[in-house]
């Protein structure tokens, strides 16, 4: 465990807690893409299959349970909570995310570390996580100005993967045979997707204006 990875896990946790706070405090999920939340639930379930087979550390197990639990709770809230579900605006959340699932699964069938059930699903979850934010970014663009908590959610989510890239560089330099190419390349793609969002977030923060994304 290095400081970059720990910082990444903490910002990832913060992003999920910010989202839960927003939904719980405002009893509203306007501006949040249910499709992105569903993709994240699939990412965590597909990636943490080893939860009960490989014990790595208490920290690892607890964090996996928290991530799976929170992502399923958010999807449950947005789909079934009698108050929150009415604030979900499905006609702006129109990204066809099933194509993302299919594309990532096909890619995982061809590009993986080992051709085993767990490894293919792990690669699938890595690819899917890289693109899972797309429905949310499309929704932000469509709805123009959005509330701060949603923007902070995306911001922390981007920061988490940026920390992980520093973690992979650090581990590559310090551990002899550390090769995590699939996660590193997908992580770079993921962080690049956020880069333009960060740019507009920084510009709006500098001008102390509301976030304006190009249509």
């Amino acid at each position: 465990m290095n400081i970059f990875r720990f910082a990444g896990d903490m910002t990832h946790l913060i992003s999920i807690l910010v989202l839960l706070l927003k939904i719980y405090a405002t009893k509203s999920c306007s501006g949040i893409s249910l499709k992105t939340q569903e993709l994240y639930a699939i990412v965590f379930v597909a990636r943490y299959l080893d939860l009960f087979t490989d014990f790595i550390s208490v920290y690892n197990t607890v964090m996996k349970l928290v991530f799976i639990g929170c992502s399923l709770a958010i999807v449950w809230c947005m789909r079934l909570h009698r108050v929150v579900r009415r604030t979900y605006n499905k006609d702006v959340d129109t990204f066809r995310h099933y194509f993302l699932v299919l594309g990532c699964f096909l890619l995982a069938l061809f590009v993986h570390e080992k051709f085993t059930f767990q490894e293919v699903l792990w690669a699938f979850s890595i690819y899917l996580e890289a693109v899972a934010i797309l429905p949310q970014l499309v929704l932000l663009q469509r709805s123009g100005n959005v509330d701060n908590l949603t923007v902070q959610y995306v911001f922390f989510l981007g920061a988490y993967r940026a920390f992980y890239i520093l973690n992979w560089i650090y581990r590559y330099l310090t551990e002899p045979h550390f090769g995590r190419w699939i996660a590193s390349v997908a992580g770079l793609v993921q962080t690049a997707l956020y880069a333009d969002f960060f740019y507009y977030y920084f510009i709006s923060w500098k001008n102390n204006a509301k976030l304006q994304l190009p249509a």
Binding site: R5, D50, D54, I56, S57, N60, F67, F178
Partner: peptide, 10 residues
């Protein structure tokens, strides 16, 4: 935690 093991990251 087992270091360098394949899937020790979240």
């Amino acid at each position: 935690e087992r270091n360098g093991s394949s899937k020790d990251e979240l």
